[in-house]
C-alpha cells in the first residue's frame, strides 16, 4: 500500500490523488443500502427517522456518519447492524440481506454496554462464546487473551467495569467487538463520552487495530465530531436534520495514511475539508450571524 499522494489546491477545492483511494472502486462491496426508509409508530403518529437513503461502502473503508443530534444517523447504522428493520428498502452486508444482528457485524455501543456484574475478561468471553459457537473453549480463551492484550488491558482482566475509567471501558468494548473478528465494525458515537485527550489516543488505537488487521475491516462510525470524522475516515456522510433525514452530501477525505494527528491539522487539504464540513453542519459562526 503506497502512501504517496499529490495535492493540488485550486479554486474548486481539493483534488488529491491517493493510490489507496484509486483502487477503492475495484474493491468488493461491503455494505449496500438501497432506498432505506425507517419510520416508527409513536403515540403522536408515524415518525420517519430517515428517508430514502442510498449508500455503498466498500470493503476496508472507514466511513463516518455525521449530523446533528436526532438526525437519524444512529438509526441508519442500526439498519446495518440489524437492530432496526427498515420500513422500506433493504440493506445488504457482506452480500447477504440484513434481517437480524449477526456476528459478521461487530458493534461498539455509545455507552460501552459492558455487563457490570462480569469482569473484563468474562465480558469478552461471554460475547465470544455466544457469537462463535463452533470454536473450542481453548480457541475462545486464546481469542479473549489476544484481544485484551491488543488494547493493553490484560493486567486489568479481573476488574469489574465499574472499576475502570471511561477510556478503559471503551477499549474493552472495542476488544469485545474485535474478538469476534467481524468483517464489518459498527461504532455508535464510540468516543462521545470521553475527554479530548483520551479521545485522541483512542483514535490512534482504533487505527492501529484496523491496520494490524490489514485494513480488511469495514468501519462505519456515527459521530458528531468533525475532527474525529476527518482524521479517521475515507468518506464522511453528512446527514440533513431530521425528521425524515436524508444524505446531504458525501465528502471524500483524500488524506494519505498513516495520518499524523499533529501534522494533519496544518495540511491545507485538511483545513479545506474541515471548513467544508463546518459549512455543511453549522450556519451560524459568530454572534454577528444571529
Amino acid at each position: 500500500m503506497s502512501n504517496t499522494s499529490t495535492i493540488s489546491l485550486s479554486d474548486e477545492g481539493v483534488s488529491v490523488v491517493d493510490e489507496h483511494l484509486l483502487d477503492q472502486d475495484t474493491k468488493p462491496v461491503s455494505i449496500q443500502i438501497n432506498n432505506v426508509t425507517v419510520s416508527f409508530k409513536t403515540p403522536k403518529g408515524i415518525y420517519t427517522a430517515v428517508k430514502e437513503i442510498d449508500l455503498t461502502v466498500r470493503k476496508g473503508e472507514i466511513v463516518a456518519l455525521i449530523g446533528h443530534s436526532g438526525c437519524g444517523k444512529s438509526t441508519l447504522m442500526s439498519t446495518i447492524s440489524g437492530m432496526v428493520k427498515p420500513t422500506s428498502g433493504e440493506v445488504y452486508a457482506n452480500g447477504k440481506k440484513v434481517t437480524s444482528p449477526g456476528p459478521d457485524r461487530g458493534i461498539v455501543f455509545q455507552n460501552y454496554s459492558l455487563l457490570p456484574w462480569l469482569t473484563v475478561y468474562r465480558n469478552i468471553y461471554v460475547a465470544v462464546d455466544a457469537a462463535l459457537k463452533d470454536k473450542t473453549a481453548a480457541e475462545k480463551t486464546a481469542l479473549v487473551e489476544t484481544n485484551l492484550k491488543m488494547v493493553n488491558l490484560w493486567e486489568h482482566k479481573d476488574k469489574l467495569p465499574g472499576q475502570l475509567s471511561g477510556g478503559m471501558k471503551q477499549r474493552v468494548a472495542i476488544a469485545r467487538a474485535f474478538s469476534i473478528n467481524p468483517k464489518i465494525l459498527l461504532l455508535d458515537e464510540p468516543f462521545g463520552a470521553l475527554d479530548a485527550l483520551t479521545k485522541s489516543s483512542m483514535h490512534i488505537e482504533l487505527l492501529k487495530l484496523w491496520v494490524m488487521d490489514d485494513r480488511q475491516k469495514t468501519i462505519i462510525m456515527v459521530t458528531h465530531d468533525i475532527e474525529e470524522a476527518i482524521f479517521l475516515s475515507d468518506r464522511v456522510v453528512v446527514m440533513n436534520n431530521g425528521p425524515a433525514a436524508t444524505i446531504k452530501e458525501i465528502v471524500d477525505i483524500p488524506l494519505s495514511r498513516p495520518r499524523n494527528k499533529k501534522d494533519i491539522v496544518h495540511d491545507p487539504a485538511y483545513i479545506q475539508i474541515h471548513d467544508k464540513l463546518l459549512n455543511l453542519l453549522i450556519d451560524k459562526f459568530s454572534i454577528a450571524d444571529l
Binding site: 447492524s81 437480524s100 456476528p103 454496554s113 455487563l115 455466544a130
Partner: peptide, 23 residues
C-alpha cells in the same frame, strides 16, 4: 443496552437468562 448486547452477540436464551436477566 444490556438487551442490545445480547442481540448483537447472539446470546442463547440460557445465556440471556444467566448472564443478563438474573444478575
Amino acid at each position: 443496552d444490556h438487551k442490545n448486547v445480547s442481540k448483537a452477540f447472539g446470546f442463547s436464551t440460557w445465556s440471556y437468562l444467566s448472564k443478563i436477566l438474573l444478575p
